[in-house]
Every structure is written in C-alpha cells, then in structure tokens.
C-alpha cells in the first residue's frame, strides 16, 4: 500500500520541545519539532546519537511528555493527556519494537504475544501474528531459546498482534547482524504493506532509509531534512 497525501495525518506535532533537567543543567533533547505523519506511511527517522530521535518517538508513543508544544494523534491532544489516557492510548493504538527486544524472559514466544492480545481491543490471534513474522514453528520457545533475530521478530509479532494504528520501532536492527537485520526489516515492511500500519523506524544506519516512503533527519533536536524517497527498495536489497 502506498501513502496517499490526501488522507488525514496520524500524527501532527507543533513546536514540540523536550528539556531534561538534570541538576543545574538543562538538556534540550528537542528544540521545536513540527511534523505531520500520514496514515500508512513508513517513515525512517535518521540522526546521530543524541539527536533527539528516541525522545521524539517516546513522545509520539505516549511514553514521555513534551515540555512545550503540542502533539496530536488523529486529533487527540497527547500533550495534555493524563497518565491514564496515555496508558489507554498505548494499549489501544501503539505497537513498540525496541533495540533490545524487551521480551518477558519467563514467557514463551506465543505467551509474549498473548500478553498483548489479552488486553487489546481487536487483536489478531497470537499464532497469526507469529506466522506473519515467520515464527510459526518456534511459538513455544522461551526468549532464551531464540536467536536475536528471532527474538526481535517475536517483539514485532507482539507489536502488531493488537493491530495497532502506529508501529514505533527504536533501532530494531541495532543489535543484529546484517542478514538477520534484513529479516526483521522484511517483517516490518510487510506489516506496513499488508496491514497499512503507519510505521516510524528509528535508525542511525543510513542504508535502511531506502526502504521508507519518507526520510526525516534530526540533528541537535531539530528536523534538518524531510524528504520522500523517489524510489523505494525492498529490504532484501539493503545491506550493511
């Protein structure tokens, strides 16, 4: 599915800043970010370490609050939401994928996915989610029994099983070798293509940007580049 410029935005941010106060020093993680993300878009967020990528994604995902400025999810103002509302927002709308998978070690692959399907509003069966990432045969394994790539794919299955409106991925291939990383990217690519889930993918690996509809580059807490890929490539064509 390709993005359509006419569809209403999933996210809209207005002059978002985020300041961390550590002792006497103020650290500006974001210095006024204005963005609009459309439904169905696959966006790659590029930037050096400390450029504010993770902070932005945390704020979009309802894990953190902006210091100033406003964040809208389909018209809902997240910057004014209470903790309870943010929890409900994450529960119903957002799927997360992290660099270190964040699987619950005491639950099997299937159970890690079930963790989410049990509380989601309109989940797909855990088995279907796992099949989608190619792990139908490894469902009853514990994280410790899976490879890094497999663990990350479980994390993706867990993120998509609730049929989220947005998928937020923070360095999903950061801990993986190139071949395994490509498998993970393929899973994300297919989810975006087949389910139409708006996807934000953080990376500092520039090679990955070629699979996105759109590439946004952050530096020093500001958007310094925002452009569309004229020609996307398949994950299989990427390597690093």
């Amino acid at each position: 599915m390709s993005e359509s410029p006419d569809s209403p935005p999933v996210f809209r941010t207005e002059a978002v800043t985020r300041v961390y106060r550590t002792g006497a020093v103020d650290v500006w993680a974001l210095r006024g970010v204005d963005l609009t993300l459309a439904e169905g878009e696959l966006v790659v967020l590029l930037g050096a370490s400390g450029s504010g990528k993770s902070t932005l994604v945390n704020i979009l995902g309802g894990l953190d609050l902006a210091t100033s400025g406003r964040v809208f999810f389909r018209g809902q103002d997240l910057s004014r939401a209470s903790d309870r509302e943010l929890t409900a927002y994450r529960r119903d709308h957002v799927g997360f994928v992290f660099q270190f998978y964040n699987l619950v070690p005491s639950l099997t692959a299937r159970e890690n996915v079930a963790l989410v399907t049990e509380i989601a509003r309109r989940p797909m069966p855990a088995e279907e989610a796992l099949a989608r990432v190619g792990l139908a045969h490894r469902m009853d394994h514990f994280p410790a029994e899976l490879s890094g790539g497999e663990q990350q794919r479980v994390a993706i299955a867990r993120a998509i099983a609730k049929q989220p409106d947005v998928l937020l991925c923070d360095e999903p291939t950061g801990a993986l070798d190139s071949a395994t990383g490509v498998q993970v990217l393929e899973a994300l690519y297919e989810v975006n293509r087949d389910l139409g889930t708006a996807t934000v993918l953080i990376t500092h690996n520039a090679a990955i940007q070629r699979i996105a509809h759109r590439v946004i580059v952050l530096a020093d807490g500001k958007v310094v580049r925002d452009e569309r890929n004229a020609a996307r490539v398949l994950p299989a064509e990427v390597s690093w």
């Binding site: 929890t87 619950v104 963790l115």
Partner: peptide, 11 residues
C-alpha cells in the same frame, strides 16, 4: 520487564 509491560499499555 515491568517497564515493558507499562510500555505495552498495561496500567
């Protein structure tokens, strides 16, 4: 692990 649950939308 518990933080992950919060992230996933558990209250």
């Amino acid at each position: 692990e518990l933080a992950t649950l919060r992230v996933l939308g558990f209250t």
